[in-house]
Design a binder for these strands. Structure first.
Lengths: 225, 225
DNA sequence: GTCTATAGCCCGATAGAC
DNA sequence: GTCTATCGGGCTATAGAC
């Protein structure tokens, strides 16, 4: 029995990983702009610079590619959010950091936010189980943190669940509704200052709602002028 | 030259209006759940109880039906919102009414909110002109009202544009992200109390942000106990 | 791994009888 | 106005040569 070597891997592992990442990156953008059904794998392949049939060699089914896209979106988002709720930061600092991180995700990865939003709005028909197992526990954990703060008297007694929904909604909308916002602001797309203004406004609203004096509030300096 | 009467209108005008309204009502729901490309007119026809070809007699093209759906969504929404910003109400009352009306729209017409959201998130490729001409002016008018309040010293000096974006985002999300919220709350769908809690939370956040004491806030009564 | 070719399906839209 | 029948096109996916 002769020893038959495995087929040469062609040293393509690195290239393959990079190619798959390229395909996924293009897929995120197209899925976000056209929706799942409105996207053809030919369009994704064209944007990624290979043929449709070649793309299907790496991702045998469209649904598989779509789920891979959402997996990567969640990986990125969860990684950015993971470190926020675990240690004993002060509420003000953690809320600031949370708002900042989520807004930054909306600014840097607008297509990721949008493709996730499209899936949720359409009823999470293809990805509900993953949302249930990966996102919901994290949100519940954040809510629990808020409730512990309330019990400890660190923030005002608010509805922790709907506070989190509000933070999520406001930050998420700077990706999802950016086209409409840009129209209102009469520019082609949102810029850095818009996001800075948004962060200031959202932080102010959240901190005011939970009774934490915002540092940005005009501090009356007595006995001056 | 004999007088030839016009073809009898068959007294169908009323029925036709009702039938079209039925078709549009079903179309809103299906477009919201499946997206524009994911929706087949056969599915809409089936839900409306007629054949595909018969539906195409009333709406010759899919895109025409889609635009009619969005037209009706905007008509409904604009009608509910029209009376809020025109007269000289006090900021607190107007903000309360605005939040209440928009949340009510999210609760009563979730598919309308979602089909509009899907269009905006996907870049408003088919409906951008209508949003530009019908929605943007209204939002700018609301922002101008906020700015007048600031000038008059009625509310704290906040960024009026992003305040409106925040209100829009929070209220809109109770339609768009309701599936995810329901998962977090461990119920099949949001109920009336959820919307009441949301209204309380959002109102509290907005009023606190603009420096208006909320009636729900614990009012310290000096010299009592 | 990349290519050509094509199967098999669903869709929007049209034509025409009644 | 409603029906049957069908066209033409785009899509996912597969088969097979190289």
């Amino acid at each position: 029995m002769s020893i038959i070597p495995n087929p040469a891997p062609k040293r393509r592992a690195l290239n393959r990983d990079k190619l798959e990442a390229d395909i996924v990156a293009q897929a995120v953008r197209v899925f976000a702009e056209c929706g799942y059904e409105g996207t053809s794998i030919a369009t994704i392949a064209e944007n990624a610079g290979l043929s449709k049939q070649n793309l299907m060699y790496y991702f045998p089914t469209k649904q598989g590619l779509y789920e891979r896209v959402l997996d990567d979106v969640l990986d990125d988002w969860l990684e950015r959010m993971a470190s926020l709720a675990d240690d004993g930061q002060e509420p003000r600092d953690m809320l600031r950091a949370y708002i900042q991180a989520k807004l930054r995700f909306s600014r840097e990865q607008p297509w990721a936010s949008r493709v996730y939003a499209l899936e949720v709005i359409s009823g999470a028909q293809l990805y509900g189980a993953q949302i249930q197992s990966r996102v919901v526990p994290l949100l519940r954990k954040d809510i629990a943190v808020f409730e512990q703060w309330i019990e400890a008297g660190k923030i005002a007694p608010v509805n922790a669940t709907h506070l989190l929904f509000a933070i999520w909604a406001m930050t998420q909308s700077y990706a999802d509704f950016a086209p409409q916002m840009a129209l209102v602001l009469n520019r082609k797309q949102l810029n850095r200052k818009d996001f800075a203004d948004a962060e200031q406004m959202i932080t102010q609203m959240v901190l005011a709602a939970v009774g934490i004096p915002s540092a940005a509030a005009p501090v009356p300096t007595p006995c001056s002028t």
